[in-house]
Design a protein around this nucleic acid. Sequence first.
DNA 1: TCATTTGGTTTTTTAATGCAACCATTTCGC
DNA 2: GCGAAATGGTTGCATTAAAAAACCAAATGA
Lengths: 153, 153
Amino acid sequence: MTRKRFDDLGCSVACALNEVGDWWSLLVIKQAMLGTRRYGDFQKSLGIAKNILCDRLSRLVENGVMTRVDVGEHGTRYEYRLTEKGRDLFAVVVALRQWSERWNGSKDSMQLVERDGGEAIAQVVVQNAAGEALSVRDVLFVDENGEPLEQAG
Amino acid sequence: MTRKRFDDLGCSVACALNEVGDWWSLLVIKQAMLGTRRYGDFQKSLGIAKNILCDRLSRLVENGVMTRVDVGEHGTRYEYRLTEKGRDLFAVVVALRQWSERWNGSKDSMQLVERDGGEAIAQVVVQNAAGEALSVRDVLFVDENGEPLEQAG
DNA sequence: TCATTTGGTTTTTTAATGCAACCATTTCGC
DNA sequence: GCGAAATGGTTGCATTAAAAAACCAAATGA
């Protein structure tokens, strides 16, 4: 059965998942953030099947998350690079990483540090305009009429 | 073919995707953050098939992201609520929302505002300890030996 | 030149998805 | 108290996507 499309759910999260919500896309993007650019390198580092990788890279390029750059002299050597849109998923990837480490204690083989100085980066949090951290309980979802919805704990 | 497990990739992002990386899980969690608690309400608001919803809710409960609370008097009325672990995905969900709105202009029917005051919340970003925003280019991935890896742009 | 790398496509098998029908309690309307 | 509806599922079936491996053509590399 053809996968359900999330476009028309009127939900931006659903819309985002439509582009990067499958099993592999975010891993490809994360790998690209690690510096991987070549088809073969993605394949080896992720252990992804080649046909699936082809499909995912094509879709990411289609959606403007990555670009395919011809780097060979005769048109058969390519690099896949993140676009600005792709790089902008940084917060999502890091938030996922940190969540996993907090709750599953999954020690990644990689650690993320600031380039200048090598210090660890901060936890990704939702903030208000003043920079104060907000939890789910501190926010309200309002509809187009400004009508608030109750929310879960 | 049994879906590839991401546990052993030595990657915390992969590990996170193992728990909430399928098409529906994050949407269920987002819906729970909106206040939905009942099986039937999830089903109606998301338009998800009932068997898939059952499976996802079970897995989320198994993984400690949600709990199933008996709320009826005679044991047939339940509520699914986010646990602390589930609520902690707030940053991930909001980051995805914002990314989608920035790049796809997907106007969600819901808007997220601060409970006290009703002001819009800030963009979710990666920060250093001093609270300065960091992009992919500002960080370095180092392995367990402290050895840095080059990274993509 | 001849093997190897690179970036795929094809084929086959297996698992997941979506849909609809069904079912046992429980609650609601009256 | 009784019938109807809601609630929270389970089952079976048709379709699709994923995984693995084989294959392939062009371009390097030794």
